[in-house]
């Protein structure tokens, strides 16, 4: 009887977590709070939601910076989804957050949900540190301005492009005080 119950629980957990469909972008509270403490050591900061992906970091007087959460599609090279235009299950993905200063220059990039089977080296904090002070105004050439990662080319390039796109569009939506944008 006990064995049957355990088996049912295991099977239903597997079935539940195998639910077809993409999981929602999660807000990794602990990881974000840890980074905020590291970046603004003595200050107490508030996080105000701007929209589902963008948050404003402020203290009682000023805006200190911005927080963005995003998802990047990737795939194993070789082996990319044959129909690359659709949002579909064949894409592997990873989720990351980016903290910028008030001038929209990167202070920290961290990948917190890496679902792809390859390219894990892109999570390396040493590699992500290269984006510090990046403001999206110029392209960073993968392999030259940003070190290439053998075996993680697709993930690394995808993140590089996403950061540039995001920084440029953050500027637009924050200045126009729009709360939605096609990508977000």
């Amino acid at each position: 009887m006990k064995k049957a119950i355990i088996l049912i629980l295991i099977v239903s957990w597997i079935v539940n977590s195998s639910f077809i469909g993409k999981e929602e972008l999660a807000y990794p509270t602990k990881k974000i709070n840890r980074e905020l403490r590291r970046l603004w050591k003595d200050e107490s900061v508030d996080i105000d939601k701007f929209n589902q992906n963008v948050y404003v970091i402020a203290n009682s007087n000023d805006t200190l910076g911005y927080l963005y959460l995003g998802r990047v599609n990737s795939c194993r090279q070789g082996g990319c989804a044959v129909n690359s235009l659709e949002e579909n299950l064949a894409f592997e993905f990873f989720d990351y957050f980016m903290i910028t200063d008030s001038d929209l220059r990167v202070k920290k990039v961290k990948i917190y949900n890496y679902q792809a089977t390859h390219g894990h080296e892109v999570m390396s904090s040493g590699w992500l540190r290269q984006f510090k002070m990046y403001d999206g105004k110029q392209s960073l050439v993968y392999g030259k301005d940003i070190e290439a990662i053998s075996g993680a080319t697709i993930s690394a390039k995808a993140l590089n492009e996403d950061l540039k796109y995001t920084l440029n569009h953050l500027e637009i939506i924050l200045s126009n005080k729009k709360t939605s944008l096609s990508k977000f």
Binding site: C75, R76, Q77, G78, G79, C80, A81, V82, N83, A90
Partner: peptide, 13 residues
């Protein structure tokens, strides 16, 4: 198969 099946990936070397 390639056009509509979004769960299949193909690669090679």
């Amino acid at each position: 198969m390639l056009n509509s099946n979004s769960k299949l990936t193909i690669g090679g070397y």
